[in-house]
Structure formats: structure tokens, C-alpha cells
Amino acid sequence: MSSNKKIPFQFSIEGCYARATGMALMAEDEKIFMGKIFAEGNLQAKIENSFFPLNKWGWHVATVVYVEDQNKKQTLNVFDPSLFDHPVSVEEWKKKILYETKDYKPSLTALYYGSRYQYNPRSHEENRTAWDLMDVDDAEQMMKFMRCRLDIADCPQEGNPTGNEQGEYQQHRQRTDQLQQFKDGAR
């Protein structure tokens, strides 16, 4: 999964929500149903040999799944290829996102689990019980934007307001905002 070029794992500075959803969808195709782990607070992660060696987030999300070892013991593993090249325990993941430097003392205000459908943290959105097409679309657009920035995918010429990925992404955001307003109004 970590070698999958569709999911821009190297773009650790932003978009964990899109990557986690991309991973959960990909796993679902293989009949693996992942959950998500959310951390909220003033977070910081150091990533060796990365485009983004030091990342500061207001929250972070990754996928989780129970893995059974040879002794039939089940343990919860966090899959976060932006931070690790292997599955890790929740404790190890937590430690990674609380990397302290001289001028920045990270802190964790909440750590909790959600279903694979949960896109944003609970402080931002209600519980999801099924895929929301707006979230899936947002994840696709965000990953496209990140791939373009990393030069993984061809990035159409800048300056063309209808053709470049950035323009498309802005249009998409406006469209999803309008849809959200419509949904809110219908409630």
C-alpha cells in the first residue's frame, strides 16, 4: 500500500484525512475493513529523508486494523505510511506525533477511534455511518492536488483558470460548500 502512487504519502505536511480515506477505500476493495485513529492537539512529527522533515498539525488521522500474529494474538496496528514504513502500535504512533523541539512543545488534547467513514475529527463533523460521496470526492481531489505538487502526476500548466489542478480544486471546494449548504438547509 505504501508504494501506491495514487496516494501521495510523501505529502505529510497536509491531507492525512484524504490519504486515510484513500487507504480505507483501497483496503475495502480487498475486504479489509479498517478503522481510523484520530489525534487532536498541537502535534509535531519529524520524518527522516522527507520533503517535509518537520510537520505541525492541529490534528492527525491514520487507519487502524487488528492484526493476528502467529500465536493467534490480535493487536491493533496503525497504518500511517507517511510516518512509518511498517505498521506500528498506537503508543509508537502517539510518540511520533508528539515530537518535541526546543521551540515547540507538542500536546495531545484527544485521542480516539472512528469508523472508516469518518473523514474529519469529531470536533469538526458528526459521526458517519456510511461513505459520504462528498468526502470521497474531496479525498480524490485533495490527493490529485498533492500528487501534482509532488510532481508524481502530470501537473497541467499554471495560469489556466479552468485547466490547472489548483483551479479544479478550488472549484471543487466551492461546489462541495454549496452542496453542504443545501444539505444543511434541507435538515
Partner: peptide, 22 residues
């Protein structure tokens, strides 16, 4: 959504984003 201050910069969290923008 919220912001914090370090010595050198303001770190700002916006809706629909997870990064602290500097």
C-alpha cells in the same frame, strides 16, 4: 478554527485542513 503562537510565527488551523499554517 484556532491558532497558537510560537516565538517566530502564528500557527493557524483552518476548517477542513489538518496542518498548522504558518
Amino acid at each position: 478554527v484556532r491558532f497558537i503562537e510560537s516565538q517566530k510565527e502564528f500557527l493557524i488551523l483552518f476548517s477542513k485542513h489538518s496542518a498548522f499554517y504558518r
